[in-house]
Structure formats: structure tokens, C-alpha cells
Design a protein around this nucleic acid. Structure first.
Lengths: 342, 342
DNA sequence: TTATATCACTAACGCGCGTTAGGTAAAGCG
DNA sequence: CGCTTTACCTAACGCGCGTTAGTGATATAA
């Protein structure tokens, strides 16, 4: 038995004027394009007060077009219960900038029973928002293509390519960061380093590899071994690989592999960094159990999130004619997990 | 020159039917009240796919009064840059359950330049969502009252009271948790404990105090000293207070105070727990720098978030006649920061 | 007195969509 | 052949509101 909320029509009836007049009065028709007498204005205001009128924002949005909604779609769970540190800085940046842009943030959480999909029943669910920021390591390229064809405004966080299309993204400059990281190792004197990682088909991984290779080119006798997944699955396997290849340093493109490398090293009784140097090519998220400050490439995920939103706003407002791609620099932090080789 | 998003009218034109037909087809008019031939249905679906049509949720909401949007409003920043652990578990739970309920999550981030406000220019900004989950230690009671009067469906995470109104909330059972925590101390033999904290006007704090007092009642010669803010502002001030009152244990309702107590203790050269026991009445979020497992009350924020969404859905669907309040139990984890007094 | 400007307001459109009464043609029936 | 039923679709209303063309009344000017 909750009373329906009063509308402009109710106010109009009570004040004895037309609904249009009510709208004009309430929107404080300042520029005086339509003059309203003070008497009527007062009557309307009083009626609105008496009824406790408040405009229905939904109706307002309908008539004004844009709904000030920025979507966030993730190909993985937005808030992973265990791995809280990963998406968080992105969302933090997204929130800040969305606030700046005077927009609300819409998290697409509907219909996530199976793999997250943008298109459901052939319909673009993102259309709920004026535009969207996309996240996730493994997007569906077909969906990205279709979004582009539809001209739906979106910005991907992370470099993602689709054959024959120009996407809009912001990405950590992994290539530059990795270049610096490997150069650091090489300048310390390392000549044979191991690269822990697979998934070479993903762009970020490619960038990391590319950066490493660029550093290698500058030192003729240096080489890098790409370790196969089996070779860092157990501590003994890794130990064997290190021995076989004569590795003096390990490079990890990934936070969990970095941790794993360190614990394996401890298991094998290798002193880090004296006997083995270890570098992470991404931000080291969890605090180390070894009280060593990690040598790693520090990303600025917060900034990346904010930038994505800024670019998205530009696209939505038509201030960006063609999709743009932006690299955000990242910084090598030299810590205590690297040293000259023995 | 961003293309305007397609409407049902566009689909209708492309399919060569009337707009009403499009609506009927897309809403999967199952009960067959209005029969549609398979041929037309296919044409419409195809046209919708081709145009990338998706219904405008704002318009849908206007006409049917619901759009599967659950709002999240926070009186503090949702994603605080530094303090990442706090809201995260809540959001994690909210996301899970919203997904279950087949709803998207809307974060209210607009107009956050000053203090976050639900009512802006006299209108309820939450009305954009079917209902909302509210968070934040210090809500505006007037706003909560007004929301209730408007009969807007919301669930507060954390017990919050408004004189003369029945709110709907889910809360950690701080009272029970604190009772257990203090009982633990008392059973260890402590008789004079200090309570670090202020902000007594807030409900969670009141609950913690109430739980402590209940435990005290069971041990006649035990007493608890409420330390004033000045008394734990510096290590020396705290040291003086501990000496003056003869404290053998400290109780902290707050994570940061817990950490501060531990570092002050270290500064003063007090062994924890041998010379001083310390208990936290909330989840200890950051890993300790002391490698001591903390004795603390463990909250289940993830579950709390999920439960809030579940209750909110019930309210929205009219399955909850009167606002309900639910306590979620929390658990005392006995760690290594407590021991019998010297 | 008639033309013109000013004032104060109303009528009406459209935002995009869900819904339903009604309309049209084909099919069934006697 | 005329009447009813059936199948399929359209026209139109209304959700609540912002906006503007237009209308009628009064005041000013020629």
C-alpha cells in the first residue's frame, strides 16, 4: 500500500497550472526564455513542497538521452575472492576518473553463470551503458570485432589486437619495462637467463618477450632460454633446468611465477640473489615471505584505469575521431632479488 | 559523429514491421497472447542482431519500473587507493550474489566532489537502480530517514539505526565476537584491559563495547579502561596509560589501531604477548610485520555482501514485508598476540 | 482604430519502450 | 455465398519529463 510517488502532473493539478509550467518552474528556467510570473512560481513551488515531489531521474534520463553510465566488463570475475589485488587498482582508477567525468559505473554481472559474454541472444548487453571499459586477459576476439563494427565505444585495458580492425586501448608498456629489466640483469653480468612463462599468444606476453629480446640484441654473447611449463612445475624440474642451461637469473612475466621461483629457490637451497637472480616483469602484489625487496617492473594500474575512462569519455563525447592506443610507462624497481652472477 | 544507438524503431524499419511487433518478438512473448509467425520472428531477430540492438534500460525502467540494476552507494570512496582490503570483500560478495540474482551492479560514483550524497537537488539519485546496498561508517541519518519514508528499497551493510524508523541491515555480530574476545582475555587471567577507540556514537563501536561489557559482568573483579584518543596517539602516551592503569592487555576495535598498538609495544620494548596481550575486534587485514599470528575476531565480509544483495532482492520482489535485520556471526581466532598476564 | 510588441502560459512533441485493443486478411463452416 | 473464427499484425496509449511552437490576452505604438 505504498503511495505512488507524486509526479509533475499531481503538482500541476494542485497548483492549477499545466504540467509544462511545473517543469519550467522546477527546472528554474533561468535564461527567461519562457517568462513565469512570481505568483505562479510560488504556487507551483508550494504545491511541490506540499506533495513532497521529487523528479523521477529515470524519466529525466530518458528525455535527455545519455544516461551517464560507464560500463565495466571483465572476462574474468571482477572481484576474485582470493586474488583481490589484481583488478582492484584498475577499479580504483576507474572510479576516480568516472567521478571526475560525472558518471556512474556499471559492473556487468548479469548472466555470468558460464563464461562471460558480451553478446547474449545476439544482443549487445553493453548497450546498457554509454560506453564500456573492458578487462581480462583473454577476450573473445569475435566480440571485439563485432563491437567495433557496431561502433560501440569501448576501451580495452591492455593491448589487444583484432585482425583488420583498429581498437582503442591503454596498456602498460611491458616492452619498455621488460627491456629495462633484462638490461639490468645483463649489465650485472648475467649472460644466460631463463624466461618463465607460456601463453605466448597473448599480447602482453609478446610485448614482454619483445622487450627482452631487444635487450639481448645489445649484448652479443647473452642468451635467454624460454622455459617450458613442465620445467617450472616443480622445484626439482626447475633445478634441473637451471643446471642444464647454466642459468644465473630468472625472469618471470607473472606475479605467481615470481613467487613460485623464489620458493623453489629456497627449497633448493639457492641463495637469492647471490646464487640466482630473480626479476618480475609485473608489479609484485603480495608481500614476499622472504623480506627481500623484489626487483620488479612496477605498473601503475590505478593510472591505467583512470586513463581508460578518460579516453572512453572522449570517445563517447565524440572528441576522439579514430580509436587511439596509449602506452603507459612502467618503471624498473631495483630491489634485493638481483645481483651479479656468482 | 558517433552513431546513435539503434532503437526498436530502427529494427522495425529494417525488418519491415511495426515497432510493436519488434517489442513483442524481443520480449519473447511466450504465452502466445499475441501470435507471431516464425518468419517475422526470424526477420526481427536478424535485424536486431544486424543493428546490434539492445533495449535502452532507462526506457524499460520508465515503463515497467524495474531494470535489474542493483545500486551500491558508499559514504566513503568505494575503492580507496591505499586501503584496498576493506571494501573489497564486500564487493566480492555483492558481485557473486548479484550475478546469482541476474542483476548488474551500479556503483554510484557521480557527483562525489564533496561528501557523497544520496539526495542531490532534492532528488533521490539512487532511484536509478531498483534498490541499493549502502555502505560506509558514517551515513547521513536524514537521508536514511528520507529513503525509508519514500519506501525506497535499500539494505545497509552494518547496523545503523534511525530514531523512529525500521531500517533493513545486515551486520557482523560484533557484540558476540567482542564478547568472545574479551572472555578469552579474562579466562587467560587478565583483569585490567584497555580499550583503544573513540567514535562511540557509531553502532558497530557500541556493539563492540556492549560485548566487552557483557564479558566483564561475568568476572567480578575485572575492569576495562576506555583509553582516550590522546592516550594512544604516541608510544609514550600509551606507555604511560598502560603503567597508570596497570593494563595487561589491549583491545582494539579497529585494524589500524591494532597495528599501532603492536608497533608502539615494540617501540617500548614490551614483548607481545608475554608482557602485553593485544586483540583485534575486526579482521586483521594487512599482514603483520611481526610474524605473529594475530588474535582477532574474524569477520566474513564476503558473505555479508552477498547476504545484503539477497535481502535486497527480496525487498525489491516484495518477498519481504517489513524491513529485517540480520546479524552474521563472526569467529574468534586465537593467535599468538595473547597469553596469560605476567 | 489597427498593427505590433510583450507577457504568461498551454498544447503538443518526443525520448524508447511494454502493452493491448482493434483491424485485416485468410481460412473454416454451413 | 455469407458468416464466423483464426492467425497475424498495427495503431495507439502511457510511463514522467524537458523542450518549444504557438495561443490568447494585454499593453504600446502608429
Amino acid at each position: 500500500m505504498s503511495m505512488k510517488r507524486p509526479t509533475q502532473m499531481d503538482v500541476a493539478r494542485l497548483a492549477g497550472v499545466s504540467r509544462g509550467t511545473v517543469s519550467l518552474v522546477l527546472n528554474d528556467n533561468t535564461d527567461g526564455r519562457v517568462p513565469i510570473s512570481d505568483a505562479t512560481r510560488d504556487r507551483v513551488m508550494q504545491a511541490a513542497r506540499d506533495l513532497g515531489y521529487a523528479p523521477n531521474p529515470v524519466a529525466q534520463m530518458l528525455v535527455q538521452g545519455s544516461n551517464h553510465l560507464l560500463g565495466v566488463f571483465t572476462y574474468e570475475q571482477v572481484f576474485p575472492y582470493d586474488k583481490s589485488d589484481f583488478y582492484f587498482p584498475y577499479l580504483s582508477g576507474i572510479e576516480s576518473e568516472a567521478s571526475q567525468q560525472d558518471c556512474n559505473v556499471l559492473l556487468f554481472t548479469r548472466n555470468r553463470s558460464t563464461r562471460p559474454q558480451i553478446y547474449q541472444n545476439g544482443m549487445n548487453t553493453l548497450r546498457l551503458a554509454d560506453g564500456s571499459v573492458l578487462l581480462g586477459s583473454k577476450p573473445d576476439r569475435d566480440e571485439l570485432r563485432r563491437l567495433t563494427e557496431e561502433d560501440y565505444p569501448f576501451v580495452y585495458i591492455g593491448r589487444r589486437e583484432v585482425q583488420g580492425y583498429e581498437l582503442c586501448w591503454v596498456a602498460n608498456n611491458y616492452k619498455e619495462g621488460s627491456y629495462q629489466a633484462l638490461s639490468h640483469l645483463l649489465h650485472l653480468g648475467h649472460r644466460t637467463v631463463g624466461f618463465i612463462g607460456n601463453e605466448v599468444e597473448l599480447e602482453p606476453q609478446q610485448d614482454k618477450l619483445a622487450g627482452c629480446y631487444r635487450a639481448l640484441e645489445e649484448i652479443p654473447d647473452a642468451r635467454m632460454i624460454i622455459l617450458k611449463p613442465a620445467e617450472f612445475k616443480t622445484a626439482t624440474a626447475l633445478a634441473a633446468a637451471v643446471d642444464d642451461y647454466g642459468l644465473t637469473a630468472l625472469v618471470s612475466p607473472d606475479n605467481t611465477y615470481f613467487h613460485r621461483a623464489l620458493s623453489y629457490a629456497q627449497e633448493c637451497g639457492w641463495q637469492v640473489p647471490e646464487m640466482l637472480s630473480v626479476v618480475s616483469l609485473t608489479t609484485v602484489e603480495n608481500s614476499l615471505p622472504f623480506s627481500l625487496r623484489p626487483t620488479h617492473v612496477k605498473l601503475n594500474r590505478h593510472h591505467l584505469g583512470a586513463l581508460a575512462v578518460k579516453m572512453l569519455s572522449q570517445r563517447i563525447n565524440g572528441e576522439m575521431e579514430t580509436p587511439q592506443q596509449v602506452y603507459v610507462p612502467c618503471e624498473l624497481i631495483v630491489g634485493e632479488t638481483t645481483a651479479p652472477p656468482r
